[in-house]
Design a protein around this nucleic acid. Structure first.
Lengths: 330, 330
DNA sequence: TAGCAAAATACAACCGATTGCAAAAATCAC
DNA sequence: GTGATTTTTGCAATCGGTTGTATTTTGCTA
């Protein structure tokens, strides 16, 4: 910048104002400086600017996908969420630092915020992090969490309506006459529990020939595959599987088919997320669309509001059922 | 930091040295300062440190997945690559800024580098960016590209051996007696062309009853699905499909099955990438494993070497065939 | 053309760390 | 105990912008 100042014969403060399009500088001067800046390929030094402005124009996104934990590293849901958040942040000229902690004990959240590397933080999922999120103190002002609505949270939550999603699936299964449902997922996770509760709400007070069986599985497809195989080898019969994610549902379909069961004739399968692959397997996967793109936008809008000091409340994104061949084909 | 200095009664320069574990400060003084820092939850201000040290301990990763372009936003390959790079970077205490440009014209590369937001840049894929990468000038010293080895590149390339991957697939198809192969992908992309050439190399000089047909498809699963359907409706017969990615292969299987063709009995299908879902569809997908985890590590190691001023050369990562039911099941 | 307001520019402090060098304190040798 | 070393600490410049305030220039009015 001092180089530009010499070139154009003005003070660096004027150069700075020109580059920031301040109304304080004369139009001609501004044009001249901008032309020089363009010609020399000058780019403002973000490090100096960040220090002075006490901001880094960067948000952080933390996705806990540590091995052996609750989530599978290759679940496309995350990529779609990253893309949605990234593009929403770009609209505000924010960059995005991505952090995928290797272990539950990593403390990237605090570090990113307190060091000023990120102005705010988006955390995807509450699993195993609720206490830590609660302990953020003041820094919680600059954190937004994607997850199911739980009352105990004193941080800001954004998420789809997991209960409603579960309920929609229940209604659909009821509509197509399925009564013996397997719920595949880990209801110890808040989001999954809500989906389960939504599902159950449909059958409240119904006749005794309906049943919902909970089969615990992490978000890892291989585990879901094994669980489903075991289920087929068991004695209980079932005519529908509702999985807590599309990855689990796809694995379940694979397991069912390998056991000679037809989807959806013998067993209807429903997933959750509506990832790209859901439409591209055979049969197509009926699933819940959380509208991840909108979710990402709301996360970013909410976070930027919080950073600006505006109070914000929890937000639900719309949730809808996408019906494909895994429930009504055949 | 000045707060810590007052608390401990020493100069901030001593505090700085203590926090950086400099041998210049007395052991007792150091312990005392560290204890205070811990108690007060102090974190070094990265913005000030970055400015002074002329480095930001941050790498950038650019993934061109703009809509309508060559790649599908939900391709799990990218997520696995992001995870691999992120974890490799973390080992060197680097953070990772992720950039998913919306359009081919975005110039995040230059901005991130020249503004100093990132010390170096990893670009995933050369598609549509070759000229731009060439025009980086000095900044090319801090860029590493994941992609197929092409001679014209004057930037540093890291990638798996795409030719060898294609060759391995060819050998395998030959072994199982398939002769009429459809190659599904866009050979205008350097990586895909190499895979295609590898495949072709197997049949060089063979008898006339073998054929390889190129069906152009972007990396979008929906397009591959339509192309495969059209293929089934065409007159040419084929007994194998080699797709340029697993996402395409999965879509192709879906299309084949929906047309009543059996995989692998009627048509064998091979993918590329070995994403998590490849093992979880029915039948399991035979595919090429690029060892993305290792690839991410090499990308980061190479980039950090370049940043340090060490000359580095292009690197190939190992490539291997993973055989599953989509070619030898049934 | 003087006088005053408005516009444009320059000056200088500041953001919060790092680091070369000077100064002070501690240790050692004799 | 004194001088020479070695440790340890403090001082002050520096990184490269931004911004409040002072100053200069320009433009307008009478």
């Amino acid at each position: 910048m001092s180089g530009l100042a010499k070139l154009s014969g003005v003070d660096i403060s004027t150069v700075s104002r020109a580059l920031n399009d301040s109304p304080l500088v004369n139009g001609k001067t501004k044009d001249h400086i901008l032309k020089l800046a363009h010609e020399t390929g000058y780019a403002i030094n973000a490090r100096a600017r960040n220090l002075r402005k006490q901001s880094s124009q960067t948000l952080g996104i933390v996705i806990p996908v540590y091995p052996g934990s609750h989530q599978n590293l290759s679940d496309p849901f995350f990529l779609e969420m990253i893309a949605a958040v990234s593009q929403a942040a770009a609209k505000f000229d924010y960059d995005l630092i991505i952090n995928l902690p290797n272990s539950p004990s990593e403390i990237a959240e605090r570090r990113l915020l307190l060091s000023g590397k990120a102005d705010g933080l988006i955390v995807i999922g509450q699993a195993g992090r609720i206490e830590r999120l609660r302990s953020l103190g003041d820094a919680a002002d600059r954190v937004v969490v994607w997850g199911g609505m739980i009352e105990a949270a004193d941080y800001t939550l954004v998420g789809s309506d997991n209960f409603e999603g579960g309920r929609l699936v229940g209604e659909h299964l009821k509509d197509i006459g399925r009564h013996r449902v397997v719920f595949l997922g880990d209801i110890d996770l808040p989001e999954v529990e809500l989906r389960y509760n939504g599902l159950m709400s449909v059958w409240n007070g119904d006749s005794a020939d309906t049943s919902v069986k909970h089969v615990r599985s992490s978000f890892d497809g291989h585990e879901a595959y094994r669980q489903t195989l075991a289920l087929c080898e068991g004695t209980e019969s079932f005519d529908a599987v509702f999985a807590a994610s599309d990855v689990l549902a796809i694995a379940a379909i694979h397991a069912l088919q390998s056991k000679g069961l037809r989807v959806p004739e013998d067993v209807a399968v429903v997933g959750y997320d509506n990832i790209g692959q859901a439409a591209m397997i055979s049969p197509g996967l009926t699933t819940i669309d959380q509208n991840i793109k909108l979710g990402g936008e709301i996360l970013v809008n909410t976070l930027i509001d919080k950073i600006a000091g505006n109070p914000v409340r929890a937000t639900l994104t719309p949730t809808k059922l996408v019906i494909r061949g895994s429930t009504v084909g055949g």
